[in-house]
């Protein structure tokens, strides 16, 4: 049995020094790829995730297309070098396939697919470096990439995980807190309409704890949304002509 590290000290500080309701530093950049119709890169703590959006484009295979709306397809993929452990396998795992499905479904009613019958909109998510909470970071970046592609959205979606460590509800679990904690609870929320588009949970929580988690998530979503807006606006104020990605861009505490 491995030693379980102390996740919360006497002053209520977490391993990385954060308070219980504090987010890790985050930074988002929109428009980092030349070939994709829309793209975004997010650094969230130690997570580095790249999202590309193509479409609306011709739906192949044809039998998947619908005469009423665009097909929204999503692929979440982890690079074999993304974790500090040994070199992983490339290709889809059971976990990545589940995440592909639920992230796709998060955006199914957010994207106005009815505008583009018979077409497909493809979302590709590459996790280059993982440190817990990749699906929330991916959902947050995907919204930015979709907006960058000019795909009509009813709302912007931001996501964050809450969880339980040392019997306390905390915001934005890091990898260690997820591994050794008692519960992980990723939540994606439409910022304007306050609809919950993604909700997953494992471990044990009381109803009171779920309520506290939701309160924390709703408060954090507002902050994350402001970063999404900033990323999209920067794309219009910068004079940079070439699109490029800087994997070590600075992150900010919010």
């Amino acid at each position: 049995m491995e030693n379980i590290p102390k996740l919360l000290d006497e002053q209520g500080r977490r391993i990385d020094g954060r308070a219980v309701d504090e987010l890790r530093p985050i930074s988002i950049k929109a428009g980092v790829l030349n070939n994709a119709d829309g793209s975004a890169f997010i650094r969230w703590g130690n997570n580095k995730i790249l999202v590309a959006v193509y479409g609306p484009r011709e739906c192949i295979p044809k039998h998947e297309s619908s005469p009423y709306r665009a097909q929204l397809r999503c692929r979440y993929n982890m690079a074999p070098f993304c974790s500090l452990a040994e070199h992983g396998k490339s290709g889809p795992s059971r976990r990545s396939m589940e995440l592909s499905k639920i992230i796709g479904e998060t955006f199914e009613k957010v994207v106005i697919t009815e505008n583009f019958p018979k077409t497909a909109i493809d979302i590709f998510i590459d996790v280059l470096q993982s440190d817990g909470g990749t699906r929330c970071a991916a959902v947050t970046a995907t919204t930015v990439a979709l907006a960058d592609a000019g795909i009509p959205l009813k709302d912007m979606v931001a996501a964050v995980a809450v969880g339980k460590i040392e019997n306390k509800v905390v915001l934005d679990l890091s990898k260690d807190e997820d591994n050794f904690g008692q519960s992980d609870n990723p939540i994606a929320i439409g910022v304007r309409d306050e609809q919950i588009f993604l909700y997953q949970m494992d471990g044990l929580l009381t109803k009171e704890e779920i309520k506290e988690g939701l309160r924390m998530a709703f408060a954090a979503i507002k902050k994350i949304h402001s970063l999404q807006l900033k990323a999209l606006e920067e794309n219009y104020t910068s004079q940079e002509h070439q699109k490029f990605i800087s994997l070590n861009m600075p992150t900010f505490k919010i």
Binding site: N46, F81, C82, S83, Q129, D131, F244, I245, N248
Partner: peptide, 18 residues
């Protein structure tokens, strides 16, 4: 750009035009 993925033991990003 070098050392861009901390979790990998070595890494570099090369940009050649686009």
């Amino acid at each position: 750009e070098k050392n861009v993925i901390d979790n990998a033991e070595g890494s570099a990003l090369c940009r050649l035009g686009n």
